[in-house]
């Protein structure tokens, strides 16, 4: 069996996420961050941010929903039972702050086979309400035994 590649280049509809102060705090506590700029508006402003600032990896919260339809698309045809998250890259631009409205689009960059495994590479791009790019994500899923 070989991987299907017709979904390469396909894009999926954008998702919108409104960043909230308490959600930032919940995420920051889960990963053990204690920088007050993630919890307290005054501390964030004192550190030069517009409002409570999200930790960089909070990007998974607002960008992953855009990836759902891509991963479940029958044209992509990933076998979830044999799938692992193989690699991940993020490049950050403008910080995400409480009150931001972030729009994320997703695209299939590559599908290929190597050593009996299928590699499915997706890109997400997230921009804020001012049109500034907040983060670009490259998500690599590996399916064994394709």
């Amino acid at each position: 069996m070989t991987v299907k590649t017709e979904a390469v280049g396909k894009e999926w509809p954008a998702t919108t996420y409104e960043v909230g102060k308490e959600k930032i705090g919940e995420y920051a506590r889960a990963v053990g961050l204690d920088n007050q700029a993630h919890f307290d508006r005054e501390a964030a402003k004192a550190a030069g941010y517009r409002d409570v600032v999200a930790p960089p990896m909070f990007c998974v919260v607002y960008s992953a929903p855009a990836l759902g339809p891509a991963m479940f698309d029958p044209e992509v045809g990933m076998n979830f039972a044999a799938m692992v998250h193989g690699a991940q890259e993020f490049e950050w631009g403008e910080p995400a702050c409480s009150g931001d409205e972030i729009i994320t689009t997703s695209k299939c960059l590559e599908i290929f086979e190597k050593d009996g495994k299928g590699f499915y590479v997706f890109e997400t791009r997230s921009v804020n309400q001012d049109g500034d790019e907040v983060v670009k994500g490259t998500w690599t899923n590996i399916v064994r035994g394709v």
């Binding site: 990963v31 920088n35 700029a37 930790p55 990896m57 991940q88 890259e89 950050w92 490259t138």
Partner: peptide, 25 residues
């Protein structure tokens, strides 16, 4: 997220210091 925390701390702790992070699981 822990790797990001570690790299951010090494750069002084400001969350916007982290510009790019790539990992293999």
């Amino acid at each position: 997220g822990l790797v990001a925390r570690s790299a951010t701390d090494a750069a002084g702790g400001d969350p916007k210091a982290l510009k790019r992070l790539s990992v293999q699981f």
